[in-house]
Design a protein around this nucleic acid. Structure first.
Length: 310
DNA sequence: GATCTCATCCGCCATA
DNA sequence: ACTATGGCGGATGAGA
C-alpha cells in the first residue's frame, strides 16, 4: 500500500484537497488490495477551515515523521510545513502541488530549473518571483521528474488520475474517472484556455460555449457576427477588446486545442481534421505545425494514449 | 516552389 | 463636443 499525504492549509480551496483525495480513494474499488492510504495533514493538525467554510480534519505533519511517504501533495505556506516537506522529499517517491501551492515549492527551491504549472491568474507572478522556474502557463499539470505541479481545482483531479495511471495503469485511471462522473480525462498539456474563458464569463461566454461545441461548423467572422447579432466590424472590435484575441485566432486556438486532445485519445489525424473543423488533413497539418512545431501524426505518436505531460 | 485568391485584421472616417 | 457604430480598403498571410 502506498501512502499519499495531502498537506492542506487554512483557507485553502476545498476541491484542491478533496478532488485528488477522492481519486486515490476510489482506486480501492478497482484494485485487489486498497492501493492507497490517503492522509490529510497540516502543520498544527486538528481542523482547518477551507474557503467554502467546510472544515477538514487533519493530522499534524510532525506525526508523519515515521510514516513511509510515497506521494506528497502540497498546499503550503509555513515553516513547519517547509521543514516537513524538505525532509520528506528525499524519502517520498514524488511530490506535487495544486494551484498556487507551486509558489511554496518554488520558494523552497524545489522547482529550480524545472517546468511547472500553476493557476493561470498566478502564472505571471510565479515567473516574476521565481525566474528559475519554467512556468508552463497553458498546462493543466506538468510532470518534471519527481515533481508534479497542477493548475488548481479541477486540474488537481486530472493530475491525481495521471498519478494513479502511472501506478496502476490506464484502465484503473479511466475507471475511476468514470466512477467520479468526469466527462473526460484531460491530459496535462491541454491548455487552461477554455477554463480561463469560462472563468472570465463576459459578454461572449455563451457564444464561446457554442463555438466549442460546434467546432466543425462554419465559423467565419461573418457567421459569428451574425450569431452575435452584430455587424462584422463591431463584432470583431468588441470580441478583441473582450477576450484579447481576434475571432479567427480564437477559433483556431480552440480547434487546435481540441485537435491535440483528440490525437492524444488516439484518433487518427484525418478524423481529427474532420471533427475539429479543419476539414482537410493539409489544413490541420499546417496550423498544427505552425503552432506546435510538430505534425499531427508525430504528435499522436509521441503523446497518443498517454495522459502524462510531455 | 511560384503564384493567384481569399479571409482576416485594423486604421480611417462618415454617420447615428 | 463626445462616443459607438459600421462600411471601406489596404496590408498581411494562409490556402489552393
Amino acid at each position: 500500500m502506498r501512502t499519499v499525504v495531502i498537506v492542506a492549509y487554512e483557507a485553502c480551496q476545498l476541491l484542491d484537497v478533496t478532488g485528488p483525495a477522492s481519486v486515490f480513494a476510489e482506486a480501492a474499488a478497482f484494485a485487489d488490495a486498497a492501493p492507497y492510504r490517503v492522509l490529510l495533514a497540516s502543520s498544527a493538525g486538528q481542523f482547518i477551515s477551507t474557503e467554502g467554510g467546510v472544515a477538514l480534519g487533519t493530522v499534524t505533519v510532525a506525526s508523519l515523521r515515521e510514516v513511509e511517504v510515497d506521494t506528497l501533495r502540497g498546499l503550503l505556506h509555513d515553516v513547519v510545513l517547509r521543514d516537513f516537506v524538505l525532509a520528506a522529499t528525499g524519502r517520498a517517491r514524488r511530490i506535487g502541488s495544486i494551484c498556487t501551492g507551486a509558489f511554496a515549492l518554488a520558494a523552497w527551491g524545489l522547482l529550480d530549473g524545472k517546468r511547472a504549472a500553476t493557476h493561470w491568474q498566478a502564472a505571471d507572478e510565479l515567473t516574476l518571483r521565481f525566474p528559475a522556474v519554467q512556468v508552463d502557463r497553458d498546462a493543466l499539470f506538468v510532470e518534471d521528474g519527481a515533481v508534479w505541479t497542477s493548475a488548481g481545482v479541477s486540474t488537481g483531479i486530472d493530475m491525481a488520475l495521471a498519478l494513479v495511471e502511472c501506478d496502476l495503469g490506464r484502465d484503473v485511471a479511466s475507471a475511476i474517472a468514470k466512477r467520479l462522473v468526469l466527462q473526460m480525462r484531460r491530459p496535462g498539456h491541454q491548455s487552461q484556455f477554455s477554463a480561463m474563458l469560462e472563468a472570465q464569463g463576459g459578454a461572449y461566454a455563451s457564444l464561446v460555449a457554442w463555438i466549442s461545441e460546434n467546432l466543425a461548423d462554419d465559423l467565419t467572422l461573418e457567421t459569428l457576427a451574425a450569431r452575435a447579432r452584430q455587424s462584422p466590424r463591431t463584432f470583431h472590435r468588441r470580441f478583441a477588446a473582450e477576450t484579447g484575441t481576434t475571432p479567427a485566432a480564437f477559433v483556431e486556438r480552440l480547434r487546435l486545442d481540441r485537435a491535440r486532445a483528440l490525437l492524444e485519445a488516439g484518433q487518427s489525424a484525418k478524423e481529427v481534421a474532420g471533427t475539429t473543423g479543419f476539414g482537410s488533413l493539409d489544413r490541420l497539418g499546417r496550423a498544427f505545425k505552425r503552432v506546435y512545431a510538430l505534425s499531427p501524426s508525430a504528435y499522436r505518436a509521441l503523446h497518443g494514449s498517454v495522459s502524462r505531460a510531455r
